[in-house]
Write a protein that binds this DNA or RNA. Sequence first.
DNA 1: CTGAAAGCGCTAACAA
DNA 2: TTGTTAGCGCTTTCAG
Lengths: 375, 375
Amino acid sequence: MSTETGTAGNGTEGGPAAVEPASRRARGRATMKDVARLAGVGIKTVSRVVNRESGVSPAMAVRVEAAVRELGYRPDAGASALRRADGRTSAIGVVVDDVANPFFAALLRAVEEVAVRHGTVVLAGSADDDGSREREVAQAFTDRRVDGLIVAPSGSAVDELGSEVDRGLPVVVVDRAVEALRVDQVLSTNELGAADAVSHLAAHGHRRIAFLGDRTSIPTARERLAGYRQALAAAGLPVDERLVAADLHGEASAEGAALALFTGLPDGTWPTALFCAQNRVTIGVVRALRRLRLEDRVAVVGFDDFPLADLLQPGVTVVAQDPTRVGTTAATLLFARIDGRAEAPRTVWVPTTLLRRGSGEIRPDGAALSAAARG
Amino acid sequence: MSTETGTAGNGTEGGPAAVEPASRRARGRATMKDVARLAGVGIKTVSRVVNRESGVSPAMAVRVEAAVRELGYRPDAGASALRRADGRTSAIGVVVDDVANPFFAALLRAVEEVAVRHGTVVLAGSADDDGSREREVAQAFTDRRVDGLIVAPSGSAVDELGSEVDRGLPVVVVDRAVEALRVDQVLSTNELGAADAVSHLAAHGHRRIAFLGDRTSIPTARERLAGYRQALAAAGLPVDERLVAADLHGEASAEGAALALFTGLPDGTWPTALFCAQNRVTIGVVRALRRLRLEDRVAVVGFDDFPLADLLQPGVTVVAQDPTRVGTTAATLLFARIDGRAEAPRTVWVPTTLLRRGSGEIRPDGAALSAAARG
DNA sequence: CTGAAAGCGCTAACAA
DNA sequence: TTGTTAGCGCTTTCAG
């Protein structure tokens, strides 16, 4: 094993050089140079073997592979990306509102699935509906030179993203449309889905249908509100603005708003049906109806499915989104861009599905309703 | 925060070449060299300003900052890590079973929270209870030279991890104890929590308490089963192995197992209470009891809380884990290691909490039970 | 205080 | 087929 090539010129080494890893910086990791020395070959040969390039004699390959195993060598992906012509890091970033939100968690998982097939790791970050944090997260990712970004934009921080797009960074927007960005977008049919939900209620005889929704700073919330208005118009129903509770945030405020609908309004003007434009809003509303013992009297349809919605009593009828499909589609589009597809940006609409479970099929019953709430 | 808008540099040298980014590999990104050229300073001065090192004259700093802004310069974290003495990448990896599982999603979120405070990004990966995939994910992360790893081990793939630990990679194990690894571990009190649940049922008069649990290849499943046996012993109750359904996987098999308990056993030997050792098992069991219309007759306590457990009827009593605390603790321990703490590995037990919601407080009622199931 | 040179671990381009 | 040289973008070392 006396394989001193003499050309190393590495001043920092010493002792049993062949076995001893060269650098403590790399946490005791062997480098390509170490492998080359142990195998008695040039460093480029090691590179060829490690990257499975052709044009290496079997004998050499065997020697190198043995050295690789002996040293437990693993290539440094960062160093590789730095030097490589295409500069690819085989990492992508996913920026969502909250990775713990079931919708985004499922989306993240779907993205990961596609990413592993592309030998790519996933950086995940939560923006918490905060533009500046979104910017920071996205920047932290681009600072690491990710190959691409999947973003559910919070709304405001789009400009920074725009400059990355202009630089040529592949970006796919999910969940929330951003007109200003010329990138692929994968969106649920928010307006259509909301209209479906409200039409469904109207078809069951409801004429006083309330809207409870998320902050209107969020595009999806606005689209769902638009769908609500559109469906009312289509059904020939007037919009009573007292029945529109937008700008809710979280379960608690939704619960409060729902209670207010039945306590703050004059008798007889109460809604007989509620359309809940978001996940957590729906849950808050269900809580409120339970407290009022109205869960079997007032119809409810929610936008976005949630686990156990079918096990509640009554089961909660929802317009379900498909986060897995959104994630899969977004990731597929992203990798197509990363691999060089240069077509015009495309927007893919992922359809929603109405799931009838009981709460949305309750028919209006004004008299019983007043009595129940009063008692 | 200088309020100066350093436009002073205008007109000083340049030409188009100074604005033109040097490298197309970097996707049209300016490099330090570009900034240095535009500012008319040495590259090291740029490095000092960018890294906020001391010993730069204010005038220089202003010029450099102006050039940084003009070019939209952002340092390449990868290149920086490659050269830096400590080799830190400011990235950590989190390997769990499934990032879409609410327990792990919450854990991931908690880890992320700590990580951002340390200026660190999070690589997330799902191992899907598959040892070889776990190995691949962890390896993909270490190939990127993450500063540390948080892993919920699937059980088998621990050896590879061990060699990373030996190399000095900071690793924290969460959720599932691994005796063989000398690393920090953050675990829920599985055995104790399970025993609590069963004792709670016994205290409510139950003598025939069934166990329904996850695959026993998973350490946590074994610990919870041990807690079950221990609590029965403590209560002076015999273990009837016909009431022990382990090795379930997923909701469907849990539902089937629960049904079997009430159809496959002789009359009078049915359980009056069920302990469900895992999230999805609990949900499957609830489904089964609904089908049998036994939900108000048979007591249920689940291990691990889940959203809406309180909104079911009856509310589902659970022994809740605290994934956020697990994640926060694990991340805190990890960063302490990354920052050089060299104490002996520590195991932190995160306590579980019994949440009484109704289903666990049902008292045994054998006669009614037989009748109901028969009808 | 400032900058030139060296080199992290690797791949690209070009010898041999 | 193999190896040598250069250099990715950055930090370190060390000389001005």
